[in-house]
Every structure is written in C-alpha cells, then in structure tokens.
C-alpha cells in the first residue's frame, strides 16, 4: 500500500501528478494490435495498460443463447494477477462480473445488433496494469476493437471519469485520488449522439457537484474521442499504404 498523501491538491491548485483539475492523463491508443482477433486495441491511459479484442460476428457457443432477431454481445473484463499492488486472484471477482456487465451495456447502444441475427460478438478485455479508471479506459479500447472488427456502429464510445478530491471536482482520477477522494463518477458517451451509455457513482456529491462532475466527464470523453479517431485513422492509413506498395 502506498502512503496516504497529505494534500491531494496543492496551493497552486495542482494535483499529485502535477495535473490541473480539468486535465486528462496522457493517452496513447493503438488499433489492430492482435493478429488473431477480428478487431483489437491497446490503450495506455496514465499508468493503465489495457488490451481489448473483439471476435465475431460468429456462431455462438453455447448455441441456445442465440437470438432470432439480433446478435448477442458478450463481454469479459478481466484483470491480470500482476496488474495491481497486491496479487489479484485470476478467478473472476464480483467486481469484474459487475464491470463486465456495465461495460457491455455501455457499448451495446452503439452497435447495430439487429444487422446480424443468430450470431454472437465477444469482447475480451485484459487489464495488464491498473491505475484507477480501468473501466473507462476499457470501454474506450473495446469500442475501437469493435470498430476495427468492422462491426457496424452508430458511433464510437468514449469514456472518462470525474470525481471529487478534497473540495474540488476533478477530471480523470488516478488510483490514489480514487481511493482517497470523496467521489468517483465514471461516464461513457456516444460523442456524436450526445448520449450517456455508462454512468456510475460512488461517494457523496451535492446535486450541483454532480452536475459539474458529469459536465467535466463529458468534456473529457470528447477529448478522448479525438484520440480514438486518430488511432483508427492511423491504423487504416497503414493498411492503405501496405496495399499501395503491393500494387
């Protein structure tokens, strides 16, 4: 366990890692990193390192889970045993099962599930290193994996948390801020549709603080969306260049 810091926000209004209250951690995204998956993405969001892969649309196993009028989206969020300070048992915890569900529900509004009846799409998320905000970074990466797999989507999904540390509402909490802070509000949006697809909260916020946190998180999501688009473009510019060389 790391020591409890004295002050989460210093006199200049800067945070533990020197960020301003409304500043994101550095984000790096790469699309198409796994050759065996139909679509994949790797994200580094601060110290978070996460891989996401999408498989499908494909035949579902077990078969009785198929639906006659739509595809079934399944999602597994999993943390590597070495991803956190104290080794995490590789067996799925209750937290991971809940997060798998909310991540699936955050992505599903963006997918045209009715285009592929009687099929399934599986999303696998592996958190290789965790530093607060893994569910949001996972959604950001998984949406790109779905897009990379060529699954028709209404929009991408970008996610980011806001929260409260001390008396300040801040964007994108890292691990220590999440643990010591007084509230955490993870949000996922479809940026072009102005639609919130994931919203959770723990901690105590007044109505006004909550409103501010949601606004801040949405602003953060929009910035992440810009990075997502760049990563997708980079991937397909590379594919295009390869093809040109072959010709």
């Amino acid at each position: 366990m790391s020591e409890k810091p004295e002050k989460l926000i210093d006199k200049k209004g800067l945070r533990l890692d020197g960020r301003k209250p409304d500043e994101l951690r550095p984000i790096k995204i790469e699309v198409g990193v796994l050759s065996n998956a139909d679509g994949s993405a790797y994200i580094e969001h601060g110290k978070n390192k996460i891989l996401a892969a999408a498989f499908g649309p494909r035949e579902m196993h077990p078969k009785h889970l198929t639906l006659p009028d739509r595809m079934v989206l399944r999602c597994r969020y999993h943390m590597a045993p070495f991803s956190v300070q104290e080794r995490k048992s590789p067996a799925p915890s209750r937290r991971e099962i809940e997060l798998s569900k909310v991540i699936r529900e955050a992505l599903e509004p963006a997918v045209f599930v009715e285009y592929y009846p009687r099929t399934g799409v599986d999303i696998f998320i592996e958190v290789l290193q965790a530093d607060g905000g893994t569910r949001c970074a996972s959604i950001t990466a998984a949406a790109l994996a779905l897009a990379d797999a060529g699954i028709p989507m209404r929009d991408l999904v970008a996610a980011c948390a806001a929260g409260k540390v001390g008396d300040t509402v801040v964007l994108d909490l890292m691990d220590t801020e999440d643990k010591v802070g007084s509230a955490d509000v993870p949000v996922a949006i479809m940026p072009n549709l102005n639609a919130v697809t994931l919203l959770q909260m723990d901690g105590i916020l007044t109505f006004e603080e909550f409103e501010r946190a949601v606004d801040l998180a949405i602003e953060g999501c929009k910035k992440i969306y810009a990075v997502q688009k760049e990563a997708l473009k980079a991937r397909y510019m590379a594919v295009k260049q390869e093809e040109e060389v072959e010709e």
């Binding site: 909310v102 959770q200 909260m201 007044t206 109505f207």
Partner: peptide, 9 residues
C-alpha cells in the same frame, strides 16, 4: 438529499 451512489443499467 445528496447523491451517494448511482448505477445506470
């Protein structure tokens, strides 16, 4: 009257 937990489903 403050919010202390939220879950969207």
């Amino acid at each position: 009257g403050n919010i202390c937990a939220i879950q969207k489903g």
